[in-house]
């Protein structure tokens, strides 16, 4: 599920862009230090592979609906987390351009939602410990399944959080969450099964390809799979409990938390690159008019939202007329230019 520009506020978009840009920088630096040259073309082609395989739909048993491969988790297992993160980010970037999936501002959120969780959360914390040395097919299945489910739940939660923080929709946080999480639970299971299948296939044919294979997992030798699973379930219960408390305590959006975040100035600052320019722009333009962080300039008609029902009808009428005029002009200019060009070329 791709986040869309239209649902985002600049502050939320820029924050996630900053986080994503930092992660891209981090992963690049990490890889540069210890990347086998051989992997440079492999990463690029693996991205194209995910892209291509996403085009092949498959039917989900018993439902008749179709699913496709998300990619982040499988790449993390096959290429290692840092390489996988860069590849996932590049896939989402190409999709943002060629499929207009979400848009440019939302790209930061999308890379965060679909890249960070599988590569930097689910892979090291869940997949690695559960899969161990990656030799037991049963453990691969369990590990793929649980890490894919967790990554997708976290991603879906993130989409809801970003939407609510942006305040463009009226959809209550808890309701939205209740819509998103179950859907993504199902998607996560499917993704997990497919991931496990492909990993096992690759493992059977060319075991040397799989990243970290042979370098023993972080699993302590004494720990059994059952203990780990029990720990994992406990973790899930605690997280779930915390989340539902969170959701019920603040059922109508999360205005308070954005206030806290920005109030404390905790927006991650980036000092160069796109994130910096975005941040600069965002500071210059009025940012979150809904929340009234920036006082209305010059006391003009700027303040609109909080007092919306009080706006006088005369202003709106002028706006409607002007709006129609402007829209008409924009289209007319476009057509005129096109007509002129065609006239010249024929």
């Amino acid at each position: 599920m791709h986040m869309a520009d239209a649902l985002l506020s600049p502050a939320v978009g820029a924050t996630f862009w900053a986080g994503t840009a930092a992660a891209i920088g981090y992963a690049s630096k990490k890889l540069k230090k210890r990347l086998d040259d051989r992997k440079i073309p492999l990463m690029g082609v693996a991205g194209a592979f995910i892209f291509a395989s996403q085009m092949i739909n498959f039917t989900i048993p018993g439902t008749g609906s179709s699913g496709h491969l998300g990619g982040g988790m499988i790449l993390a297992i096959l290429l290692g987390p840092h390489a996988a993160f860069l590849v996932t980010a590049s896939i989402l970037t190409v999709q943002a351009f060629f499929f207009a999936d979400g848009g440019l501002l939302a790209l930061g959120c999308n890379i965060w939602n679909l890249g960070i969780y599988p590569c930097f959360v689910a892979y090291p914390l869940i997949y690695k410990p559960l899969a161990g040395d990656g030799k037991s097919p049963k453990r691969i299945v369990v590990a793929s399944l649980s890490s894919a489910v967790v990554a997708l739940q976290a991603g879906a939660f993130s989409v809801v959080l970003e939407t609510s923080l942006s305040g463009k929709t009226e959809l209550p946080f808890a309701t939205f969450l209740l819509l998103m999480l179950p859907i993504h639970l199902a998607i996560g299971f499917v993704e997990g099964f497919v991931t496990a299948g492909v990993v096992r296939y690759v493992h059977a044919v060319r075991p040397e390809i799989i990243e970290g294979d042979g370098s023993a997992g972080t699993l302590p030798s004494g720990a059994s799979l059952r203990n780990l699973l029990a720990g994992f379930v406990a973790l899930a219960v605690v997280t779930g409990g915390a989340l539902s408390w969170f959701a019920s305590a603040h059922p109508d959006g999360l205005e308070w938390s954005i206030g806290k975040i920005t109030g404390k100035g905790e927006l991650p600052e980036r000092d160069r690159g796109i994130a910096a320019s975005l941040k600069g722009v965002q500071e210059r333009t009025a940012v979150l008019p809904d929340y009234g962080f920036k006082p209305p300039e010059g006391g003009s008609k700027e303040e609109k939202t909080p007092s919306w029902p009080a706006v006088d009808a005369g202003t709106t009428a002028s706006g409607l007329i002007g709006g129609a005029l402007v829209l008409g002009m924009a289209l007319a200019v476009g057509w005129a230019i096109r007509a002129a060009r065609n006239g010249r070329s024929s």
């Binding site: 440079i40 291509a52 980010a89």
Partner: peptide
């Protein structure tokens, strides 16, 4: 504009082989 070169070369490889692999998948 400041994106890490390694990431940019990933984008380029992806773009280059996107069409090749799509055809293969097809």
């Amino acid at each position: 504009l400041g994106m890490p070169p390694l990431f940019v070369s990933q984008l380029l490889f992806l773009y280059r082989y996107l069409f090749v692999l799509l055809e293969e998948a097809m």
